[in-house]
């Protein structure tokens, strides 16, 4: 993955428990440097190792780490100068997720070694949206939960994210976005 993903994880850990914890994490997984280049493509193993060691450090499950990272990613990329792209992609949750593939396609021109995920949005009735997420990277479903939650927060919309599990074709994960009142959002940890 490109280094900006790992820097996003670093940013999360620095916010949660400080530089010393981050340095310890890097040392334990054998990283020679404690920072990353945004524009360098790193082995996926680095990212998975980081998630595992952050889990140990924070005492969270790896799934919780990924959820937290997904939510943090929205904040991080916005702060790191990619906020403009968010605004270009859409003005609301639906158009944004629908436009993610187009956004990724254009970003890929600048990051040719990236392997972008794909999102498809469809109506499931009663304002409910189905989101099909496809990626050749396994195990990142929880991150999408956090990402969708973070986006809802970004667009100041009320959605409850439900993770329905693997897609029938086995190529990704199935999520459902439920329009939710504010109290539900609070319960879901989105507000």
């Amino acid at each position: 993955m490109y280094g900006m993903v790992n820097r996003g994880i670093r940013d999360l850990v620095l916010a949660e428990c400080g530089a010393e914890a981050w340095d310890g994490i890097c040392e334990r997984i054998g990283l020679s440097s404690t920072d990353f280049n945004d524009s360098t493509n790193y082995d996926d193993a680095v990212t998975y190792d980081l998630v595992g060691e952050v889990s140990n450090e924070l005492g969270w499950t790896p799934e919780d780490v990924l959820i937290a990272f997904g939510r943090h990613w929205v904040l991080f990329t916005g702060r790191e100068g990619w906020g403009g792209l968010f605004d270009m992609a859409g003005d609301d949750m639906r158009t944004f997720v629908e436009g993610l593939d187009a956004l990724h396609a254009r970003v890929q021109a600048s990051m040719p070694r990236s392997r972008m995920p794909s999102f498809a949005v469809s109506d499931a009735g009663d304002g409910v949206l189905d989101v099909e997420y496809r990626s050749d990277r396994p195990g990142l479903g929880p991150m999408v939960v956090g990402l969708l939650g973070g986006l809802a927060e970004h667009f100041e919309e009320s959605w409850t994210v439900e993770h329905l599990g693997r897609l029938d074709d086995g190529q990704g994960e199935h999520f459902r976005l439920h329009p939710s009142p504010v109290q539900d959002r609070v319960d879901a940890g989105i507000a």
Binding site: D38, S39, G81, G84, R106, V107, A109, S110
Partner: peptide, 16 residues
Amino acid sequence: ADIVIMAQFAKLQVRD
């Protein structure tokens, strides 16, 4: 649009 994104990416590389 790609021009804008590429410019953004170029800034990222400069920052790196």
